[in-house]
């Protein structure tokens, strides 16, 4: 499990690791959500994190783009350490796209504006360039005809695909998915997973928190089990699902399979 040498040599050029977490700790009041998580994620790799609710998996990916500030340990994103410096945080956030369980689209803006907002205001792209990018992304997620609608006019699956396009609009190097299909009706899950899978195949570096076992088996390079604030086991999907090493993993799998 914990790779103690995770951060060694991270500052060196040519390192292939996009995310390195070393003994990351996070508490909310008296509740310790993360009790020392270490992991590394290579470029173009897709990791699926599973685990019971309250196991710290969401908290962990939220510390990677500073939606939660970690209390101890170190996090490196593309060779840059995450510190309290605002400029540093802004830079790291612009390299990471995030997709939320509840979509969090901006309800007062159209689909076009939702996706184009960050490129226009953070990357300072001219309007035309941003709109071209938006349409290209909407094609990619399969809903170009919805560009001028408001989020409330779309189905859940369509909303989540817009949210993915919005995250991609910043041309991030890393994508984080926090239970992207948990809020969806069953018949809409596939259309969202298909988009995520296509993204994984295109070489995006991704962490996906998900309970979709079929998806994890199919798309993940590695699967991780979080429990009680700790990374319990990590392995390629075949070994993880068919031959888990830890008692805790076996128990978890028996509950959800």
């Amino acid at each position: 499990m914990a790779d103690r040498s995770a951060t060694a040599g991270i500052e060196k050029a040519g390192d292939d690791r996009m995310i390195v977490a070393d003994d990351v700790v996070k508490s909310f009041g008296h509740f310790q959500a993360l009790k020392g998580v270490s992991m590394a994620l290579n470029k173009a790799e897709t990791v699926v994190i599973v685990g019971p609710s309250g196991s710290g998996k969401s908290t962990f990916i939220r510390t990677i783009n500073r939606l939660e500030r970690h209390d101890a340990g170190r996090i490196f994103v593309d060779g840059i350490e995450l510190t309290d410096d605002i400029r540093n945080i802004a830079q790291i956030r612009s390299e990471i796209g995030m997709v939320f369980q509840s979509f969090n689209l901006f309800p007062h803006l159209t689909v076009l504006q939702n996706i184009g907002l960050a490129p226009r205001n953070v990357r300072r792209w001219p309007k035309k360039k941003a709109e071209e990018k938006v349409m290209q992304l909407l094609e990619r997620v399969g809903i170009p005809e919805q560009a001028h609608k408001y989020p409330a006019e779309l189905s859940g699956g369509q909303q989540q695909r817009v949210a993915i396009a919005r995250a991609l609009a910043m041309e991030p190097k890393i994508m984080l998915f926090d239970e992207p299909t948990s809020a969806l009706d069953p018949e809409m899950i596939k259309e969202v997973l298909d988009v995520i899978e296509e993204l994984a195949e295109s070489g995006m570096t991704m962490i996906v928190v998900s309970h979709e076992i079929g998806f994890a088996r199919h798309v993940a390079d590695r699967v991780m089990l979080f429990d009680d604030g700790l990374l319990i086991e990590e392995a390629p999907p075949n070994r993880f699902f068919d031959d888990p090493q830890h008692e805790r993993t076996k128990r978890f799998l028996s509950q959800i399979l």
Binding site: A90, N104, F106, V122
Partner: peptide
């Protein structure tokens, strides 16, 4: 909702832009 702040932050919007473009209009 808190998710609106989080989505804006995750996109790299500064606090000022987040308030002006996302939070205050709503």
């Amino acid at each position: 909702p808190a998710g609106q702040y989080e989505a804006a932050r995750a996109l790299g919007l500064s606090t000022t832009r987040m308030m002006a473009l996302i939070v205050l209009p709503q």
